[in-house]
Computed example of a mutant assay.
Amino acid sequence: MAGVMESVDQRTQLVGQNRLELLLFRLEGEQIYGINVFKVKEVLQCPKLTHLPKSSSVVRGVAHIRGGTIPILDLSLATGNPPLSNIEEHFVIITEYNVRIQGFLVSGVERIINMNWEDIQPPPKGTGHEHYLTAVTKYNDQLVEIIDVEKILAEVSPMNEEVSEELITDEVAKQAPNLEIMIADDSKIARKQITKTLEKIGFSVVAFNDGKAAWDHLKELADQGIRPAEKYPVLISDIEMPEMDGYTLTAEIRNNPQLNDMYIVLHTSLSGVFNKAMVSKVGADDFLAKFQPDMLAQVVIERMTNLGSEMPVDVEEALKS
């Protein structure tokens, strides 16, 4: 237990400092890619794979690892490139995204680097492949591409994006159009999923591509004499975002007397003890793992209720179940 807590303490030192650690890897060729270390469980030589009939071509097979069966996705195929060959010579990065475990087949793993989120930028437009990137950065004067894994997973194994009808009662549907929800997320697929869920209930949505854009908007409102907490009863923010991450955005809001009463939900594909410790440290109101439309709907409906709207009995019962 002492070792686990020491690791938690070390990781949480990055919180509020707008920093992250990237595991660098390669597919075919010289291009370097990066993935947040928090999402990595382990790296190992590609084990023997068992092919799954009728599965996506991106899924090269499943591997039996530590008592579990894990799908192995070819990241080269997933990003529109030729499949990796001689896979037994390659490596698998075991990750946890959206409360799911999967492995990513890569040709080689380089190193772990510590970066500042200010040095992580949105992908350049017009490159022809920005559609699968969520961000880019530079290391030793070489471009590092950060893949939009949420987009890849949504294409390979689409998640349910529908909200249960019993949650959208007449009273909720009546109150929701009066409220505007703010979201910040650098993944295009994630923004689409969140917006679809909230609009299904009846809320209006204002979306930003990263934490810095969201922060600038909130400060502008405050400078105009508008209380952001009154305009947006809920801010739903991703954690991993270029220029300013969700932890830093939350910390900045909490340290600003004009903004510190905002209700903040950190909504992320990251999960585990590290993130719960970080959420507590920066002062977020709630933490929700992606992507669970009913859970997201429940969090926002509960907030709406606490603001004074009447919660119908059947929705209260649904939230308890």
Results as ranks from 00 to 15, higher is better:
residue 247 Y to S: 00
residue 75 L to S: 04
residue 203 F to A: 03
residue 316 E to S: 13
residue 247 Y to V: 01
residue 115 M to I: 03
residue 52 L to C: 04
residue 287 F to S: 03
residue 253 I to S: 02
residue 204 S to H: 11
residue 268 T to Q: 06
residue 209 N to Y: 10
residue 17 Q to F: 04
residue 64 H to Q: 13
residue 153 L to Y: 10
residue 139 Y to K: 05
residue 112 I to S: 01
residue 112 I to V: 15
residue 172 V to R: 01
residue 196 K to T: 11
residue 178 N to V: 12
residue 259 L to C: 05
residue 180 E to T: 14
residue 317 E to L: 14
residue 286 D to N: 10
residue 119 D to T: 07
residue 84 L to P: 02
residue 148 D to S: 09
residue 105 L to Y: 05
residue 226 I to H: 09
residue 188 K to W: 05
residue 116 N to K: 13
residue 290 K to M: 00
residue 276 K to I: 02
residue 215 W to I: 02
residue 119 D to H: 13
residue 297 A to S: 13
residue 204 S to P: 11
residue 54 K to Q: 08
residue 112 I to F: 10
residue 277 A to T: 08
residue 105 L to N: 10
residue 299 V to Q: 06
residue 128 G to H: 05
residue 287 F to K: 02
residue 272 G to V: 12
residue 119 D to W: 08
residue 181 I to C: 08
residue 114 N to H: 11
residue 18 N to I: 02
residue 313 V to Y: 10
residue 270 L to F: 00
residue 64 H to F: 11
residue 35 I to G: 02
residue 178 N to P: 02
residue 44 L to P: 03
residue 277 A to Y: 08
residue 216 D to V: 12
residue 268 T to W: 08
residue 321 S to R: 14
residue 95 T to Y: 03
residue 264 I to K: 08
residue 230 E to H: 11
residue 238 D to I: 04
residue 277 A to P: 03
residue 16 G to C: 08
residue 200 K to D: 12
residue 111 R to D: 09
residue 102 Q to L: 13
residue 116 N to G: 07
residue 273 V to S: 12
residue 239 I to E: 02
residue 278 M to H: 05
residue 191 R to Y: 07
residue 204 S to F: 08
residue 313 V to S: 10
residue 40 V to C: 07
